[in-house]
Amino acid sequence: MVSTVGLGCNNFGRAGTPTETQEGTDSVVSAAVDAGITLFDVADVYGKEPGTSERMFGQALRGLGKAADDVVVVSKFGMDMKGTNGADHGARGSRRYINRALDASLERLGRDHIDLYFYHTPDGVTPPEETLAALDDVVRAGKVRYIGTSNHAGWQIADADHLASETGATRYVAAENHYNLLDRRAELEVLPAAQRFGIGVLPYFPLANGLLTGKYRHGTAPDGSRLSHSKPGLLESTDWDQIERFVAFAAERDLSPLDVAFSWLASRPQVASVIAGATSPEQVRTNAAATSWVPGDDDLAALDEIFPAPEKIALF
């Protein structure tokens, strides 16, 4: 079991954020545990340099003492580590690479196992049967408890489940994918696949880079906001009327836009935990409390009006 909201650790060690420092990271991790968050989502590639986030998160966990025993640590392999794990030959789903990446992650985290280990993105080269076999081995070796996919298509999730079922290998139990009210494409293939195969979905970017916080209005961004300088194009392409209707929807129910965005995700039957990044203890506490609203059928229908479900490709 994991908390409804998980802490995304991609900001640990990120330049220009309060969690760039170890002290800032420690305070966020501590606040998360105090707020009842048990799921911590890190990846080997996170941080200003690959491995930075894992190292800082590992140190923060050690600072928690016994409280760290109850934490579910998620990490990932498969993104470009720019040589940190040695030459990867473009085959980051291979047995050779997985063993290297996992040992390096465990060393940085300072743990003897990872609770949930995600294949961060398919490498397009390694046959899935080899990746599954290699992950099966690390589960049997006790280095990993459970495995999952991230950024995999629905057919890849189905293919992997079929392969695991046929061969007796360890199955993927979770899928971490881009999913929020503004980008519902995961509903086309990923969520139905997850439902069919009993896989829990962990949506990332629940606030669509902050667009669903209500802080961005008609192309204006609050001072110092990350989106204004990191992704200015996103602000230009945003449908601001849609955002206004969303903000009004939340206000009518005496909720914050963030409450609505998180609670809507949490209400999806396939969603196991909503992954939300944070750079301050206040953000952590806000995020942790943001899934208490349970939308009714009318609320869901109204949200569908504002954020229509993606149009199905097939005519059925």
Binding site: G86, A87, H89, A91, S94, R95, R96, Y97, V125, T126, P127, E129, E130
Partner: peptide
């Protein structure tokens, strides 16, 4: 051949 191709990928470095 496709399945063994993966072994070649992993075996390359070791060999």
């Amino acid at each position: 051949i496709r399945a063994l191709g993966a072994v070649a990928v992993l075996g390359f470095g070791l060999v």
